[in-house]
Design a protein around this nucleic acid. Structure first.
Lengths: 235, 235
DNA sequence: CACTAGTCGATTGTCGACAATAGTCCAAGA
DNA sequence: TCTTGGACTATTGTCGACAATCGACTAGTG
């Protein structure tokens, strides 16, 4: 009985994720989650890719404990799925679920969040949102789609945070990465990067005006323009 | 410096959860999660209640590892919230978030899930759903609101599972416990327990008929009757 | 040749101990 | 008296080792 010819039970696993600075102790769970999320939303890890805890732990220079917690976090965000005693793999999203599940939920959540945020908007928040819009403009000018998507996400995240509704925020944060992962898988993330900043200026204007029907309409229009076609945007 | 008079840094923590049979090894995470979820949705643990890992581990007769994982799971379901190095507490839901966030999402999810489930419905599934309806009738006759709510949840869970849409199911399962926890906090869970089984018979009939507009209307009507008033049902 | 039971390797699940952190209390000094 | 700095405690975060489980492979049996 030759040991050499024995095939491994499970396929190869895990592309290389190392090569970044070492992770400081005591915040490893979050850093691991961030790196894995980035690897998935950027397309470095594709759906079906097997992830094993030991391999990830070695590549990231930690023990299995933070990796396990990070995988649980990503499972919550719908980016991976794990089977007891058998491992974890990257989960894809179908175009149909994007269209019929995730985008409608995002619209519903953000309509409510924008309404609540409008009630609590203050000068500091406006300044923060304007800074994200400036980032978008800069990223679009530089042709940096990744930075553009980051600023896009941070703008929406800031608004939902501002709404002060904990469940709304928690659910939004579990929905958004899936949408981003889906659209990032295609090459060009934004059909027209130059208009993104302007669209968000309109959103901010509607937020400041505070007219509820108009605000809701603007939010829905914004999200639908982003996600109507198979290739929209990341945030 | 007397040690006796030193006050604990954090308030007392954790009502008693023990008193059930010991947990078999190798599925502890899930059992712990189930017990905690039950304690929260039944109102045994109230919002603001502090939960510490060691106390829970001792009461449930395990180590901290499964407790940690269970708490992460409950955090995903929005039942608890945890702060780094400071602990975990039971999270409440406002009536406003129930009305504007959770119920709309449930309607959207279930409308889609019922449509997809109608396409895949077979004899076995129908039999399973009918068995849940029988449980509802029996529970209502026995005046057992808890069993009624269980059967209610299992009916809907079975339909969403049958839809075969992984993200839809995952999100539904993270939404549903919050709704149940909210409504269970009041005394009477169902305004009129006797009609629940009949309502689900109508849902199943619509599912079998498979007419999409009528099915969607029935689903929305069903959920709204349940959750329109501050005291509706659990599933 | 099909079938069943047993073995083996890969992987996750669990445990106990230690490290790191945040908030509290107290004492010393202005 | 008010402030400020330093211990102290409760708690979570991380680690390495071991146990349990699953699927695949193998050998034996009809």
């Amino acid at each position: 009985m030759s040991v050499d010819k024995v095939q491994p039970c499970y396929p190869a696993a895990v592309s290389d994720l190392s090569g970044l600075p070492p992770i400081p102790v005591a915040s490893r769970r979050d850093v691991v989650a961030d790196r894995l999320r980035e690897a998935i939303t950027s397309g470095q890890l594709l759906p079906g890719q097997k992830l094993t805890e030991v391999a990830l732990a070695e590549q990231l220079g930690t023990s299995r404990a933070p990796v396990r917690e990070a995988l649980r976090q990503l499972e919550q965000e719908g980016l991976v799925v794990s089977y007891p005693y058998r491992g974890t793999e990257v989960l894809g999203v179908s175009q149909e679920e994007i269209e019929h599940v995730l985008v409608p939920i995002r619209i519903s959540l953000e309509q409510y969040a924008f309404r609540k945020a409008a009630e609590r908007l203050d000068a500091d928040s406006v300044a923060e949102l304007e800074s994200f819009i400036a980032m978008m403009a800069a990223a679009a000018a530089a042709g940096d789609d990744s930075a553009l998507a980051d600023a896009d996400v941070r703008f929406h995240d800031a608004v939902v945070s501002l709404s002060g509704q904990p469940h709304c925020l928690q659910i939004w944060r579990s929905i958004q990465p899936r949408v981003r992962a889906y659209f990032r898988r295609d090459a060009g993330h934004y059909a027209d990067a130059s208009v993104v900043a302007e669209q968000h200026r309109r959103l901010l204007a509607a937020l400041r005006a505070g007219d509820e029907p108009e605000l809701e309409a603007e939010v829905e229009r914004h999200i639908r323009t982003h996600f109507a076609e198979p290739r929209g945007g990341g945030g």
